[in-house]
Structure formats: C-alpha cells, structure tokens
Computed example of a mutant assay.
Amino acid sequence: MPFGFGDQRNAEQCKRSICVNNPYLDSMKEDILYHLNLDTSSHDLPKEFGDVKFVCVGGSPWRMKAFTEYIAKELGMADPNGEYPNICEGTDRYAMYKVGPVLSVSHGMGIPSISIMLHELIKLLHHARCTDVTIMRIGTSGGIGLQPGTVVVTRQSVDSLFLPRFEQLVLGKTVVRNTELDVELAEELLQCGKELAEFQTVSGNTMCTLDFYEGQARLDGAFCSYTEEEKQNYLSEAYAAGVRNIEMESSVFAAMCKLSNIRAAVVCVTLLDRQKGDQLTSSHDILHSYQQRPQTLVGYYIKKKLDALKRN
C-alpha cells in the first residue's frame, strides 16, 4: 500500500477513533464535505458532532426523518414542537438529523450513492473526533425462503458469486476489500430481536447487487435473458450459500466501515420472498408496517445501550 498506511497499523493507531486512511487530509487547510453541505472552516464539527455514538443510515430521507422522530421519543428527547431540522439543508443529495448521541443519515439507492455519503460521513466523524461509534444500516430487501416482514441481521455481505468481498476499481486496478461485519454487534441485535418478540429476526448472509432487476434475477425488468427455471436455480444456490436477503448497499457499507475501524451492522426487513415472485403486491399499510421493523429493533438496541451506560 502507498504511504505505508497498512490496515493493521492504522487499526492499532486508532482502536477507538475513526480511521480515515488518507495522509492528505492532515495537510488540507479546509475539508469541504460537499454532498453533506458541511465543512471544517465554517462549522465547529467537534462541538456539533463530537458526542455521536450511534449512526443510523438508510435509503430515503423520509425514512431517516421518521427514525429520528422515533428514536427521539424512545430516548425521551422528543422536540415539543416536532421540529427536527435537516443538518444537510441546502443540498438535495442527502438528509441528516441529530438527536443527542444519535445521528440519522440518508444514503440514497445503490453502491455509488452510499459510497459517496460514507466517505464524507467517515470524515465528519473523524474531524469531530468521535470515538466508539456504532453504525447501523436499516432498510428493505427481497427475502429468499423467508416470510415477508422477517428482519435479517446480516452475518456477511456477499457478492453475486456469494463471496464475502467488495471489488473497488482504483487507478484502473481492482482492489478487493473484506465485507465482514461485527459479529458481536450482530449477536446483540439478534438478542434484542428475541427480547422484543414482535416479529421474526434471523441472521444470514446478504447478497449485495449492482442493480435492482437483472442483477437480482428478476423477471419483470425491461430486459431478461434467462428463464424462470434459471432464476429459481440461482436463488436456490444463493440460499444454499447462506443468503437470506438481497439489497444494493451492504458490501461497500461493510467494507468502508471495516477500513475505518467502525462497528457496523446491516438490519433489513424482507418485503417479499423472491422465490415466490418479483413484484410487491402487499398493501401500502402492510409494507409501511414492515419498514418500521428495522427501526424498532435498532431503536431498542440503542436505548438498551444508553440505559446501560447511565447505570454504569
């Protein structure tokens, strides 16, 4: 690796803090987090964000605002006027909300969108001198062999060949990065699911794809070059490899959090069983209730952790 910035060396240097793995940041007079509408010159990032311990990220701005309102009530920090300002106001790329030590950020859809957000979020946490941060992605997914509404806590993010890796092109060369997630955190979330007992929570591998249609073996896209039998065979192979759901962000999320020495988890609800169909036919109300389940689980986990810290 260039500059001698090996992963192991950096991990030793910052066991509790955020690793940015970029020697050029220290020489910059100002760092502009363009897509978050933040910067290091006009914002006191340590003052504004230094107390952050939990970051929850998800696809849509609406969903992350809903999570903010939910966690604020759970933590007894609800605004009496119901006002939760968007910290990223002024940009239409992402939305960010903060309630006490909890940061809520939208990331859009797909690997490129979440990758951009994570680069700037990780730098934000680094500039704010945050320590002991846990990041959790909440979202929706297509299940494999699971009842709709099942919440999957990801054990490993795998690619379309069912391998735990993320391939990043850097200077025209392929760099393969590890997609392991924090095992202890996953187990804690599964335990929280048992304690809640409001819906089924399972662990499994999550397949991360580059698109929503052909990459996920759907039959309902504009193009389809395979048969239904081939689709079913592929999904059966995925299930045999431990895959229980499919989405489009977990691989780069896991890889970047691991490089940054951040505890991370992926918690997604399944909206349908892909072995039984490709299109969503459930009512809006049912889908909305499913989408609330990851935030319920993660919110319970955060409250449990913060309550434990208060007792200690």
Rank of each mutant, 00 (worst) to 15 (best):
F3H: 07
N10I: 08
I18G: 09
Y24E: 12
L25H: 05
D26S: 14
D26T: 10
I32A: 08
L36P: 11
F49S: 05
V52I: 15
V52Q: 07
F54V: 07
F54K: 09
V57P: 03
S60M: 11
E74D: 10
P85V: 00
I87Q: 01
S115Q: 14
H119C: 14
E120D: 06
L121Y: 08
L125A: 07
T131M: 02
R137F: 00
R137D: 04
G143K: 08
I144H: 05
G145T: 03
V158S: 09
L163M: 15
P164M: 11
V170I: 15
R177Q: 14
N178D: 15
T179S: 05
L181E: 05
E184A: 10
L185C: 09
E188T: 02
L189G: 05
L189W: 06
C192A: 15
E195M: 13
E195T: 11
T201W: 07
C208D: 04
E214H: 06
V243S: 01
E249M: 03
A255E: 02
M256G: 02
K258P: 04
L259R: 13
L259W: 06
S260W: 02
V267E: 01
D278H: 12
I286W: 03
T296H: 12
L309T: 12
L309K: 13
K310S: 10
